[in-house]
Design a protein around this nucleic acid. Structure first.
Lengths: 340, 340
DNA sequence: CACAAAAATGCAAACGTTTGCAAAAACAAC
DNA sequence: GTTGTTTTTGCAAACGTTTGCATTTTTGTG
């Protein structure tokens, strides 16, 4: 290690012949300091490769300028952690946070098993927490909320929670997906997803509503509970066809990855998509249009979602109460469904 | 905010009727403190939801127990940031770091534009830096290395660098991919990737070596420079066929995502895979076996790579010099190539 | 029981910032 | 040149830990 004698604020002050207060203020662009002095000191700092010790300033200011982002994974499989949708959200959050001067401490529900608020906030590792995904159980999240730690959750905003949830209009998404299949001639539409999962259950509701409105009989055997991974979807669809034959002509998938799994299972059996079976995904991951056939899907706008989540978190830093926000979604029609 | 009067070490000490030194040592499991006392104090701490203020301990110990992970993206497109391979690496790193008691501060080359060593290390935001991807230019990385900051890079370990690089045997990977295509009867094999990119150029070398060893003529027009995104690959393949017709019967793709793009371009033209064209990818992302046809690919073992990267970083914390490490790779034969 | 050795605890000084308040310097008005 | 006002700087006390050293308590031994 080269840093035997790291330059400190005091050292820089001595170098410049002023007090530490002046340097501190100058580097923080405090207008109390004359503009020329400020600029001179800033120049001096960068000449000497000086940067403020964050541990010290965090201790002094009681603010970290760090936000903990927790991937709330439902299971610990490789599949589930490699959903590109997650990385997209994390990336967009990173950008939004940086733009507001915060950094991103990454964690996930398998690493941080303990009391999140305590671990991240009380310890002043971070100023706030963003949880990605409500998963099936929301206990840990609720515990954070009870502790009054600044918190925003990506999930289903309709689930009435005592914390701020930002997320897509999942019910509408499920509805639009189902409606689209109906409009393109599907009669027996399978819902493929986990109805116990917060967001998925809303999509499932939308699915149910569309069926009802279009007067299509709901049938229990057309609900296929399935984890949010491609592999599981692939297996479930395979099993279903083996057991009951091809008893459906449309699939509402709870995510693009799930749709991908289903797609493969069908293609292997030479079932034509979209002619024999239409498929609608959810998320619009970058890859969706690169599937073959390209995937009709419900697009979630992660970029603006990230921006809003950060806004809501910052609001809490200022003592305001954060609100849940419903993001608009949009159906992107591609080639995995027949054209209208 | 609920924390008007946060409990501090001193408070806890008073509560327990001992000195702060004792509590501090007890909570850090220091054997100087009698075992019973230690356990009693630990119990008291968790009863009172106490956790140590990390800002303070970082300041005092001059150690953050944080590692900055920088995604060194080549371009700022949505595509490039959503490569599932990246998330896999980040996830595995997160796990490996946590197991060694470190946390992961996430950043990327577009956010952290400045001097990385200065920004992360001197400021004591982190103890070390892991860079994922060498990209096309390595200036920023070299600057970190010169500053002697603890650093490990995921990239091509054969590129002789003045810093530790952990990565796959890319040359061998390129060789094996090409050899496999040759063995399954391909005569005109296209290399699809960016030969200027550190890792890809090694794969390209391996491609060249295989051609030579099997006495197949190398042809310039069978090298298709292409960014590491599906979309670009898709377009490039489309253009190529449009211009010159189907003048190849095998593709060595520089990543699975690139392979996916190529796959789509070919399928849209009803070119049969693997019969007309065989494709080999690189990475073995979770999705590879879910493509249709499932993708033959070169598997990179990210889990053990992550473990090794962390080991090498920790070695530097102890003043040791880190070494570059070459990871074994493995060809996974699936259905995008003919069987041997 | 005395004494030395070992084990357990406490004292107090850092670590490097920020910031309320006081002081000094610069300026303005007469 | 004095006074009052405004602008600019400096002093010194925190922030909450950790840790070398000193001190106290316990244990062991003759």
């Amino acid at each position: 290690m080269a840093n035997e004698n790291k330059l400190t604020l005091a050292g820089l002050a001595k170098l410049a012949g002023v007090s530490t207060s002046t340097v501190s203020r100058a580097l923080n662009d405090n207008p109390l300091i004359k503009k020329e002095t400020r600029e001179k000191l800033q120049a001096l700092a960068s000449e000497n490769n000086f940067s403020l010790n964050r541990a010290a300033s965090r201790l002094r200011t009681q603010k970290t300028n760090v936000v903990a982002v927790i991937l709330n994974l439902t299971d610990n499989t490789d599949q589930s952690i490699s959903d590109p949708f997650l990385l997209k959200v994390v990336g967009d959050l990173n950008q939004a946070l940086n733009q507001s001067g915060y950094e991103l401490l990454l964690s996930n529900s398998f690493m941080a098993t303990q009391d999140w608020a305590n671990y991240f906030i009380s310890s002043s590792r971070a100023d706030g927490i963003i949880v990605i995904g409500q998963g099936k159980s929301t206990e840990k999240i609720e515990k954070v909320a009870e502790s009054n730690a600044p918190l925003v959750v990506w999930g289903d905003p309709k689930a009435h929670a005592n914390y701020a949830v930002v997320g897509s209009n999942n019910e509408l998404g499920g509805y639009l997906a189902t409606e689209h299949l109906i409009n393109t001639g599907c009669k027996r539409i399978l819902f493929l997803g986990d109805p116990e999962h917060a967001e998925m259950s809303e999509r499932y509701k939308g699915y149910g509503r569309a069926l009802k409105e279009y007067e299509i009989n709901f049938s229990d055997e057309l609900t296929l509970a399935c984890d949010i991974t491609s592999k599981v979807a692939y297996e479930r669809i395979g099993d279903l066809i083996l057991e009951k034959g091809l008893n459906f002509d449309g699939i509402v998938a709870s995510s693009d990855m799930v749709a991908l799994g289903a797609l493969k299972a069908l293609k292997e059996r030479y079932i034509s998509i979209p002619n024999d079976v239409g498929i609608v995904g959810f998320d619009d991951i970058a890859m969706a249009e690169l599937f073959h056939p390209s995937l009709t899907t419900i697009k979630q706008n992660t970029k603006s979602a990230a921006k809003i989540m950060v806004e809501q978190l910052l609001a809490q830093f200022n003592g305001e109460k954060a609100k849940s926000v419903v993001m608009d979604i949009e159906l992107i029609a591609r080639n995995s469904t027949r054209s209208i």
